[in-house]
Amino acid sequence: MVGWNLRRLRVAKALSQEALGLLAGLEPSYIGRIERGRENTTIETLEGLADVLGAPLAAFFVIPEPGSEMPAGLRPGRKSTR
């Protein structure tokens, strides 16, 4: 649930895992592991991520609707500078 919501919030802000990691002072691979549910994290870490994402801490604990798929990721590759 936490990972699903982290990805939902991150994608809504159009941030890559790398960008979110840099802004939050965390390794991008750690962000990915949280999103995949392979890493447990602390409330303090979630508070930092919530601050960067401009979301309340409670947003990480929203229960997805039954049958909901993981939010789609960002388009791969670099963003256009145009």
Rank of each mutant, 00 (worst) to 15 (best):
S29K: 11
M1E: 15
L15C: 11
R8M: 08
E27L: 07
P66I: 09
T41K: 06
L15D: 00
S80H: 07
E69G: 08
G25F: 07
E44C: 04
G77A: 03
G32Y: 03
R8E: 12
E47D: 11
A59M: 05
E39I: 01
P71F: 08
L49P: 00
A14F: 12
T45R: 15
R8Y: 10
A50Y: 03
R10N: 00
L57D: 07
A59Y: 12
I43A: 13
P64N: 00
A72R: 14
G73R: 06
A24Y: 06
Y30V: 07
L15K: 01
G21H: 06
D51L: 10
L20W: 03
E69R: 09
S16W: 10
E47R: 14
G67Q: 08
L15I: 05
P64A: 03
E27Q: 03
W4E: 09
L23G: 00
G37Q: 05
R33I: 05
T42S: 15
I31V: 14
L57E: 01
L46H: 08
P71T: 13
G21V: 06
F61N: 01
L22T: 03
I43N: 04
A19R: 07
L15S: 02
T81K: 13
R38D: 10
A19Q: 14
M70A: 09
E47M: 05
L20Q: 00
I31G: 00
G48K: 15
E39D: 09
G37S: 09
G21P: 12
F60G: 01
R8L: 13
A55M: 06
P64I: 04
K13R: 15
R82A: 10
L53W: 02
T81W: 12
V62R: 12
P64E: 11
G3M: 13
T81H: 15
E18S: 08
K79S: 07
R38V: 10
A14Q: 13
L53I: 02
D51V: 01
I63S: 14
P66E: 10
E18V: 14
W4P: 01
S16V: 02
G48T: 12
R33S: 14
R33K: 12
E44P: 00
T42M: 13
R10W: 00
G48P: 02
P66A: 07
E65L: 07
M1F: 08
A59H: 04
P64T: 08
R7C: 03
T45G: 04
P64M: 06
E39A: 12
A59S: 15
L9D: 01
M1A: 11
P64H: 12
